[in-house]
Design a protein around this nucleic acid. Structure first.
Length: 104
DNA sequence: TTACTGACCTTTT
DNA sequence: AAAAAGGCCAGTA
């Protein structure tokens, strides 16, 4: 981590993820674009996995651009859904989050 | 058809 | 060895 004065993609993305308030969600594209790479949405997921192991990142607040869970069933899909619901996030009948309300 | 979004893998520090 | 940093490709709308 170049914590000197080099705002890397990694720490930038982690900061954005941690900046997500309660009851709010963010998409990969939003975080990636804010981090400095509009095409680095893939890396965001990697950071969620990597940093969340040591840092307690609200990975459950990170969803895809459709407002849904990109995780496979049994891999954390219903788990994240429950976490978001516990925060007050409204889910669609299809399991989609209201990006108009929580899409910061 | 084209454009955009992904929950990874690889390499470097 | 472990963690951080970085990018390309294919699927879907």
């Amino acid at each position: 981590m170049s914590a000197d004065n080099t705002p890397s993609f990694h720490e930038r993305a982690v900061a954005e993820i941690q900046s997500i308030p309660y009851g709010r969600v963010a998409t990969y594209g939003q975080i990636a674009a804010r981090a400095g790479n509009p095409r680095g949405s893939r890396q965001v997921s990697r950071i969620l996995h990597s940093s969340s192991r040591k840092e307690k990142l609200p990975w459950h607040r990170v969803i895809n651009a459709k407002g849904g869970i990109s995780l496979p069933p049994g891999g954390g899909y219903e788990l994240q859904k429950s976490l978001l619901r516990d925060e007050g996030v409204e889910f669609d009948e299809r399991g989609l989050v209201d990006l108009e309300r929580c899409g910061c």
